[in-house]
Design a protein around this nucleic acid. Structure first.
Lengths: 216, 216
DNA sequence: TAAATGTATAATGTCGACATTATGCCAGCG
DNA sequence: CGCTGGCATAATGTCGACATTATACATTTA
C-alpha cells in the first residue's frame, strides 16, 4: 500500500484502526514497527508517533523496551468504559437540555425510527452510522469542551466494540423505544431524569456487549 | 542539565512541566524542539514524543508543520475543566460511597484539619500536597478505571492552576469546612447528595480560579 | 507609502543507521 | 531430567542529517 501525502502519522493511525476493525490485528497481538514501515513504505519515525497516539487512546498497550500490543479489553474494562460514557453523555445532555428545540427533537425522533428500520433490514453499517449521528446530536448542545473531548476519546475505543456487537445487542423495536424514551424526557426538560436514564442505558449496553464478547 | 537514564521521554515531560510551573514557559510560547534537545543534551526524537504526550494532556497545543505552543487556557476552558472534574469526582465518590470505613473517614477528617492549619501558616506547598492526597483518597474507592484515567489526565492540567491560585481562593476555615461537609455526607452514605455537592464545589472553585486568573 | 512578491532562514517532518535491551534457544551443570 | 547461564537474534530507543515547509524580511511595483 502506498500513501499519498500529508503527515503520514494520521494515515498510519487509520491504517491500524482499520486493521483492528477488520480483525487483522487481534487483541494481544504485537505490533512491529518495522513491519508496518515496510508495508507502508515509510520510515519508523511516523509509525512510532502513530503508535504512541493509539496508546493514548487506549487502543494499544505499551510496554517499555518491549513494544506495542493490541489492547486486551477485560470484561471489567468494557463495562467501565460504557459506564464512563454514560456518565459523560448523561451530564452532557442534562447540561444542555434547555437548548433542544422542536426541530432538534423531530430530527432525533426521525433517526430513532430509521434505526429501527435499518436494524430490521439488517443494514448494520447504516444502523451504526445513524446511531453515531444520534449521539452526536445529543452532544451538540453540550458546551463543555472537556466533556466533549473525553467522550471523543472514549468513542474511538467503544466504536470498535460497537462495530462488532452493538447491532446484535438489542432487538429493532427495542433500539427504537430506548431512544424514543430519551427523547421524551428531553422534551419534558427533566435534566435529573435524563441523566439517570442515559447512565442506565449505557450500563445495560455495557453488560450486554460483555455477554456478546464472552460468546466469541 | 544532564539527564541520567531511563527512557528520556518522561524526564523531558517533567522538565517542561516544571518549566511551566515556574512560569519559564508562558501561555502562548512556542516550544522549540531543537532548543530543548540542546538544553538536555539529547536528540529530538524523545523530545518529540514528550511534546506529543503533553499535547494529549492539553498542556500544549500543536499546529501541524508549525510546532508546539504552551496552551492558552481561556476562562471558559478553565471552568469547563473544573466542571468536568466535578462530574468525574462526584461520580467516583458516589459510586464507591459504601466502601469508606471508619478509618478512611478519620483519615480524611485529619487531612481536612491539617489543610486548615497549613493554610493559616501559609505553607502553600504542604497545603497543595495534602489537598491532592485528600482527593486521591476520595478516588481510591472508585473501581472504574476509565473514570480514574480521565481524572488523572485532568489533574495534570488543573494542578498548574491549582498551584498558582488555589491556596488563595478559599480562607483557611472555608477550606476545612468545605471538606468536612463532604466527609459528613459520605458518612451518611447519601450518594446522590455527595455527587451534587462535589459538583458544586468544583463549579465554585472553577469560577474563583478564573477570577484570580483575571487579576493576573 | 502600502501592498505584493521573492528570498533567506529556521523550524518541523522524515529518514536510515547505530546502540541498547528483551527474548528464545542451547549448552553445561547439578 | 530439570535448571541455570550465556549467546544469538531481533526488536525498541536514540541519534544526526536531509527534505520540506512556514515565517520574516527585503525588494519591487503601483
Amino acid at each position: 500500500m502506498v500513501i499519498e501525502r500529508a503527515t503520514y502519522k494520521d494515515h498510519v493511525i487509520k491504517y491500524i484502526y482499520n486493521g483492528m476493525q477488520e480483525n487483522r490485528y487481534k487483541a494481544g497481538d504485537k505490533i512491529l514497527e518495522s513491519h508496518l514501515a515496510k508495508e507502508l513504505g515509510i520510515s519508523r519515525a511516523p509509525i512510532r508517533e502513530a503508535l504512541a497516539d493509539l496508546v493514548r487512546s487506549g487502543l494499544l498497550e505499551y510496554r517499555p523496551q518491549v513494544g506495542n500490543f493490541v489492547a486486551i479489553l477485560t470484561p471489567q474494562e468494557i463495562i467501565d468504559s460504557y459506564v464512563a460514557r454514560g456518565v459523560l453523555e448523561g451530564f452532557a445532555v442534562a447540561q444542555g437540555i434547555n437548548n433542544f428545540d422542536g426541530d432538534d427533537l423531530q430530527r432525533l425522533e426521525d433517526m430513532a425510527r430509521k434505526m429501527e428500520d435499518y436494524a430490521q433490514k439488517g443494514k448494520r453499517k447504516a444502523l451504526i452510522d445513524i446511531g453515531q449521528k444520534f449521539h452526536e446530536e445529543l452532544f451538540s448542545h453540550c458546551t463543555n469542551s472537556q466533556v466533549v473531548l473525553f467522550t471523543e476519546q472514549l468513542s474511538l475505543k467503544l466504536h470498535l466494540l460497537f462495530y462488532k456487537h452493538w447491532a446484535r445487542v438489542y432487538a429493532p423495536e427495542e433500539i427504537r423505544d430506548r431512544h424514543l424514551e430519551i427523547i421524551d424526557v428531553i422534551r419534558k426538560g427533566d435534566s435529573v431524569k435524563v441523566e439517570m436514564m442515559i447512565r442506565n442505558h449505557y450500563i445495560d449496553t455495557g453488560h450486554k456487549v460483555v455477554e456478546q464478547e464472552r460468546k466469541t
